[in-house]
Each structure stands twice: as structure tokens, then as C-alpha cells.
């Protein structure tokens, strides 16, 4: 049937998705990328175990890698967007060589650059981040498009024996921004104090 009504987008709501990932976070360390995933994390709670990137687009996965190598006894989760991941795609190859078992990367993929006016990203044209991750050596790489799949992924976070990658298909919409602190020195020092690194 032909209809002029816009098709209802059934993909996951990004704020619901971040809540599922952080529901039982325990002592999980979280790194978020510029920019919507930073607002997503703040919408759950401004936790001192969160390190938000407000810039340095493309850095999120590598910050997660450095942290995961330094802190093998803690789990590190990077949550970033498709545009931010695309800008630092080489990081997936670099992480594919190191493969720290305590690192997980979740890419919220809405196929758009939300912060600059919702222009289409490469993933909207068929570039598959999960296939890139697999090709880079991630043995545990998941293409997730519903809540059940996301909950299964979240359950792997506390004790996976391999680096994890998830591409999470989310709806292209912009929920109200929830802004965490943006003073970089404050965020760094707060995080370091929280994990006992500021010696």
C-alpha cells in the first residue's frame, strides 16, 4: 500500500540503547566520542568513571585501547557514533593487532552526522563497520538491530575473553542534549581520581 505517511522508524532509540549498555555497569570504565554519544552517556548519569570526548574526533577507540592496556583488571567500553568511528577507522586495525580482552567498542550507527545537520554518513551508503571490524581481526563482532541483541551484547561486557565490537543500528533522531562537564582537565582529573591513578 502506498502511503504519504513517513514510515515509522523501528530502529532502537539511542537513549534506550545506552541505558541497556550501562544498566549493570559495575566498575566499567566508559569512553564516549564526539558528540551525541557523549550526550547519551550523560543522560544516564554523569558518572566519574566516564571520560567524554568533546573533540578530537576519531580518538575514542584509541583512548579506549590505551586505557584497556594500562588497566587490564577493569573492563573498558567505548561508545561512539558512526561518523566518529569512520574518522578513526585505522584504530580498528591497530586494536585488531593488540586485541585486549577487556576492551569493547559499541558504535551507535544512525547513518548520519547528527551534530552537523544530519548529513548522510558512509554507513548510510552501505559501508559496513561490523565487516570492517571482522576484517581487522575482531573475532567477536556483532551487528545489532534490536533490544534482544543489545542485551545479549551487554551481558558479554563483564567477562568476555576477547575484544568485542558491536555496530548498533539506532534511529536517526536527536533527543534533547544532556551536556556533561566540558572542562578537559576536570574530566581527566576526576576520572584518574576515581580509578586511583592520580598518584
Amino acid at each position: 500500500m502506498i502511503s504519504n505517511e513517513p514510515r515509522l522508524d523501528q530502529r532502537l532509540d539511542r537513549r534506550a540503547a545506552i541505558r541497556i549498555l550501562l544498566e549493570n555497569r559495575g566498575d566499567l570504565l566508559l569512553v564516549t566520542g564526539l558528540g551525541s554519544t557523549t550526550w547519551d552517556a550523560a543522560s544516564v548519569a554523569d558518572d566519574e568513571h566516564n571520560f567524554y570526548l568533546w573533540g578530537a574526533m576519531g580518538a575514542a577507540a584509541m583512548v579506549g585501547l590505551g586505557l584497556a592496556i594500562a588497566q587490564p583488571d577493569r573492563r573498558v567500553l567505548v561508545v561512539t557514533g558512526d561518523g566518529e568511528m569512520l574518522m578513526g577507522l585505522g584504530a580498528l586495525a591497530t586494536i585488531g593487532v593488540q586485541r585486549p580482552p577487556n576492551l569493547a567498542i559499541a558504535v551507535f550507527d544512525n547513518g548520519h552526522y547528527g551534530e552537523t545537520g544530519m548529513q548522510a554518513s558512509h554507513t548510510a551508503e552501505g559501508v559496513s563497520l561490523v565487516e570492517v571490524a571482522r576484517a581487522c581481526g575482531f573475532k567477536e563482532a556483532f551487528d545489532i538491530d534490536d533490544e534482544v541483541g543489545l542485551r545479549e551484547f551487554a551481558a558479554l561486557l563483564p567477562n568476555s575473553a576477547a575484544s568485542l565490537f558491536a555496530r548498533v543500528a539506532i534511529r536517526a533522531h536527536e533527543p534533547p542534549r544532556v551536556l556533561p562537564p566540558r572542562d578537559g582537565v576536570f574530566l581527566k582529573n576526576r576520572f584518574r581520581r576515581a580509578i586511583g591513578a592520580d598518584t
Binding site: 590505551g66 586505557l67 580509578i195
Partner: peptide, 10 residues
């Protein structure tokens, strides 16, 4: 970025 992450844990 790698070394920023490393320093977050000291």
C-alpha cells in the same frame, strides 16, 4: 589518543 588513554590510568 592511545597515550591519553594510558595516562587516564596513570
Amino acid at each position: 589518543a592511545l597515550l591519553a588513554g594510558a595516562w587516564l590510568d596513570g
